[in-house]
Amino acid sequence: MIQAFAFYLFATLMLFSGAVTIFSRNPVHSVLWLILAFFNAAGLMVLVGAEFIAMLLVIVYVGAVAVLFLFVVMMLDIDFAELRAGFVRNFPLGLLLAVVLFVELFVGLVVDNAGGLAIGKTSGAAAQGALSNTEAIGALLYTRYLFLFEAAGVILLVAMIGAIVLTHRQRSGVRGQNVAKQNARRPDEATVNMQPEIGKGVSL
């Protein structure tokens, strides 16, 4: 009963916050509702026993990705009239995308009912029973899906380097701080005793 209650709570809240994400007028509110949706999705994951995925969902999406979303959206200068004009103009495109997505989802469900591929079925290390979530995922990732896992890592690395290359600019005339040099500086190099004659001043 507790599980059923928790399931309906999480599922309802997730659907509701997903809908409000779309219908909310303020983009910042949208992002916050999206975060709530992520959170409830994590709750659902816990209910099906995928606690590791649930925690990763919260750490990665809620803790990092959504914070950056929020960061960007908060700094937007929002003009609601312009937003709504864009909505009318892009409505056909959005509708097309929605239809495509819906058809794909629908086809996927129908095909699965007709007898799906055995991709998602437990096999190998995960089926051995008493393993915890983390160990089971690790055992699969580092044996059967090793190549895919490493390839995903390389792709992310390339994306990261690409982002740095695109945004990095070498500015001239900037006096950066060299901490090692500062720490190595001693008083006798930094200060000097002078006995200036009256009216002559000191040259530095």
């Binding site: 916050l32 919260v58 750490i59 803790g63 983390t134």
Partner: peptide, 23 residues
């Protein structure tokens, strides 16, 4: 079983209180 990940997840939520307050 994922206690430490839970701690990490919760501590990553702490930033929202500050960010939302600021905005």
């Amino acid at each position: 079983n994922v206690g430490l990940l839970y701690v990490l997840a919760i501590s990553s939520l702490g930033v929202y209180g500050v960010v939302i307050a600021g905005w």
